[in-house]
């Protein structure tokens, strides 16, 4: 049985509820907008229901630590095709086991969640590292990014604590939303008809006067701090994969 849902984490919790109530065994749990019908598919669509979602989440909090629950929430944002079913199977293990099972990494879903969370954390860390703000004419430090996973919900705090005295915006151009800090609070925002350049960068005409000169100095610094005699591009690429270069002034010039 393939189950379709609206693609939200709350929606997935409603799926868990319905599966238990109706004794359904899902073979796949798929975001509605991603579903491509195949012949002989048995499909059921689950509507998101706030009451059902709440009952599942409350129930899980009784069976697992809030830290373990947050790991599921984080893993969900990896958007891997198998992630819904993995979370479902993880929850099934939690519910069917007496006592705590969260560290039995011999169990497929438990190890998989652990590994996906590790990948998420790496991507979050990469955003902490690779976001490059550009000062715009309206005095906003703005950055466009294109992370492998949906990490926006997990990076705002870091930047809020660090850049408390400047306006900033980080925008995920692929998922078409971002976070904006107005020096008071974080906001999730969606920009209607954004005017990026062809490769989804901020247009030069929107940049503040001295912006380019700081980028040039940063490029100069970057090349001067490298040691030619030690050049090791394999190692370099391992640390800074090419897909991130576009938004790094030191690599895209």
């Amino acid at each position: 049985m393939k189950i379709l849902y609206d693609g939200s984490f709350d929606g997935l919790m409603s799926v868990v509820f319905d599966c238990y109530e109706q004794k359904m065994v899902p073979t796949a749990i798929i975001k509605m907008h991603k579903y491509q019908p195949e012949m002989f598919d048995q499909v059921q669509t689950v509507e998101t229901n706030a009451e059902k979602t709440k009952r599942v989440i409350d129930g899980l909090h009784k069976k697992m630590t809030s830290n373990a629950f947050n790991q599921l929430f984080k893993a969900f944002h990896s958007e891997f095709d198998d992630i819904e079913l993995t979370i479902f199977n993880y929850i099934r293990l939690v519910i069917s086991t007496k006592g705590y099972i969260g560290t039995d990494y011999r169990q497929e879903p438990i190890l998989r969640i652990k590994q996906v969370v590790k990948m998420m954390n790496r991507e979050i860390h990469r955003m902490h590292a690779f976001v490059r703000f550009q000062l715009t004419v309206d005095g906003i430090y703005a950055a466009t990014v294109n992370p492998d996973f949906d990490v926006m919900p997990f990076i705002g705090e870091h930047f809020r604590k660090r850049y408390a005295d400047q306006l900033w915006l980080i925008y995920d151009v692929q998922r078409d939303y971002g976070i904006y800090y107005d020096m008071q609070k974080l906001q999730t925002i969606h920009i209607e008809n954004p005017e990026w350049t062809a490769n989804k960068k901020i247009k030069d005409s929107l940049l503040a006067d001295k912006e380019k000169s700081f980028q040039n100095m940063w490029q100069q610094y970057f090349s001067s701090t490298s040691i030619a005699e030690r050049k090791n591009m394999k190692l370099h690429l391992q640390h800074v994969p090419k897909r991130y270069w576009k938004y790094l002034p030191e690599k895209s010039a």
Binding site: H125, R162, M183, S226, L235
Partner: peptide, 25 residues
């Protein structure tokens, strides 16, 4: 970060880039 100033040190450190010889920047 004190009094809504600039910056903080988080304890774990971040490499913002890597040189072509593979060292942390």
């Amino acid at each position: 970060n004190k009094n809504k100033g600039l910056g903080n040190a988080t304890g774990m450190g971040i490499c913002h880039s890597y040189t072509e010889d593979g060292r942390c920047v």
